[in-house]
Design a protein around this nucleic acid. Structure first.
Lengths: 83, 83
DNA sequence: GAGAATTTGTACGTATGTATG
DNA sequence: ACATACATACGTACAAATTCT
């Protein structure tokens, strides 16, 4: 089996930690544990929107955090890749 | 004379340069020429929205650029200040 | 101190443009 | 031509921090 989808930690909108930071932490962890390996594409914004139930703007802010941390690079029309 | 308001360079939404970058350039220039001096507060988001006729999100993006360039600092509830 | 007003922060939704495959 | 994916811009609502009355 192994259904591909793993856990999808939930995002709590009522938390003191903003949703975009929670999502950034989730993705950062997946990168650090190797669940998302180097050069591997990060799920598309649309996918993350559906998977975590947040708005696209929130997804973009989360990815922006990772970009600022130099963990990923984003290319218009292609996607976001782990560095 | 001297009406306080100076020029208010316009922002061209049809330009190849995004509106938020145009606004960032305008504010950056005002900082570099001393029109906005050190420790002086930058006009509030609401003021910039009215003055330049763009959405608040666009204003925030412009200021974010200046923050990334370490030209200003922003404090919730207070405002944005020239460094 | 209480309350209102101001100002930035977060989150949502929509529409359109640009780049890639 | 088409579908996918990121980029920009608009608007709305509410929360949080600060300042003013």
């Amino acid at each position: 089996m192994c259904h591909g989808r793993v856990d999808a930690r939930k995002i709590d909108l009522r938390s003191a930690v903003p949703a975009y930071r929670q999502l950034a932490s989730i993705l950062r962890e997946q990168i650090e544990t190797g669940e998302l390996g180097a050069d591997q594409i990060v799920p598309s914004e649309a996918t993350l929107v559906q998977r975590y139930g947040v708005a696209r703007g929130t997804v973009r802010r989360a990815i922006e955090v990772l970009r600022d941390e130099d963990l990923v690079v984003t290319v218009q029309g292609r996607g976001t890749f782990v560095k």
